[in-house]
């Protein structure tokens, strides 16, 4: 298993390189450039700026320069927020976004698995029907609707939680954004979990476990749950992608100082280096999430283990 993990980790490097290469050229295909929009600058100043950032050089040379800097851990300066480097911007925003993402993931998995198991144990009962309703609602409503609705209910009417903003020492600020982000995830996972557990409960080995008189609880937790989790874990890769894109909206709705806004703003401002930095971070996160999902799958099912642990 160790060798497998190592190979997969090494495999991330070429994938990232392809991702960066494609992004590098695609963002430069878009019309305009970093200093085109903001203010009408004198042509001389603009040329000077371009020279300063090396943007006057041939594209291939710029690409190699970027890779060279990256290899030395330098993500370059931001063209739109000129007081900061890209690394500083990401360093400031990522902890907020990562905390939000982790909280939403944990909440989504916990809620999804619990709801799914509950619904599968008594198909057609109240909980099962509530799940159907819950899934339909949360999957249909975009988070820029659910977010403000939650803020309205729990912030403005009940005064339980802050409506927006962020303070690093106050987890209260995280609750509403994390719930908003987690709800659709929980709904998807619950439906997966329900279907999967229902199928596993029909399996021959579950009937055999019952025939051994092991008791309902033991059969469920020990024999049925782990195989039933396989599709849920398989969804963690796509879930990571959802969390990344979802966080853009949620961070805007709740005015969180995360990195989500940089991806949109960087693209609008043609802030090439910032966009590249974000692509790198989110690409790496997505690849790592997929690796984690595969490793978890191997843990759940000994038949897919490639090598002895």
């Amino acid at each position: 298993m160790f060798g497998y993990t190592l190979r997969r980790l090494l495999g991330i490097v070429p994938v990232l390189l392809i991702l960066l290469t494609v992004s590098f050229f695609v963002v430069r295909l878009a019309p305009g450039g970093p200093f085109a929009a903001a203010r009408a600058l004198p042509a001389r100043t603009r040329a000077e700026l371009k020279r300063l950032y090396g943007l006057d050089r041939p594209l291939g040379v710029q690409y190699l320069d970027y890779l060279d800097a990256l290899a030395h851990g330098n993500l370059g300066p931001s063209y739109s927020m000129r007081d900061d480097t890209v690394a500083q911007l990401i360093g400031a925003g990522l902890p907020v976004s990562a905390t939000l993402g982790a909280a939403a993931l944990a909440l989504g998995v916990a809620l999804g698995v619990a709801l799914g198991v509950g619904a599968a144990l008594n198909p057609g009962a109240v909980l099962d029907r509530l799940l159907t309703l819950f899934a339909a609602l949360t999957l249909a409503l975009p988070s820029f609707v659910t977010g403000p609705l939650l803020a309205l209910a729990f912030g403005l009417w009940l005064h339980w939680l802050p409506v927006a903003g962020w303070r690093p020492d106050a987890p209260r600020y995280l609750i509403l954004p994390a719930v908003t982000l987690a709800l659709p995830l929980a709904a998807s996972l619950a439906r997966l979990m329900r279907a999967s557990l229902l199928e596993v409960l029909q399996a021959s080995y579950v009937r055999t476990a019952r025939a051994r008189g092991l008791g309902r609880a033991r059969v469920l937790w020990h024999h049925a749950l782990r195989p039933a989790l396989v599709p849920v874990v398989g969804y963690l890769g796509p879930a990571a992608t959802y969390l990344v894109t979802g966080s853009l909206v949620v961070e805007t709705v709740f005015e969180l100082p995360g990195t989500g806004r940089y991806l949109v703003q960087g693209a609008i401002d043609r802030d090439y280096t910032l966009v590249m930095g974000m692509v790198l971070v989110y690409g790496l996160l997505t690849l790592l999430a997929n690796l984690a999902a595969d490793l978890a799958h191997a843990w759940l099912d000994p038949r897919v283990r490639h090598e002895p642990l």
Binding site: S204, Y205, R207, A209, R226, P227, D301, P302, R303
Partner: peptide, 8 residues
């Protein structure tokens, strides 16, 4: 083949 729990 299918009557033993695969992950135990």
């Amino acid at each position: 083949m299918s009557s033993l729990t695969p992950h135990l």
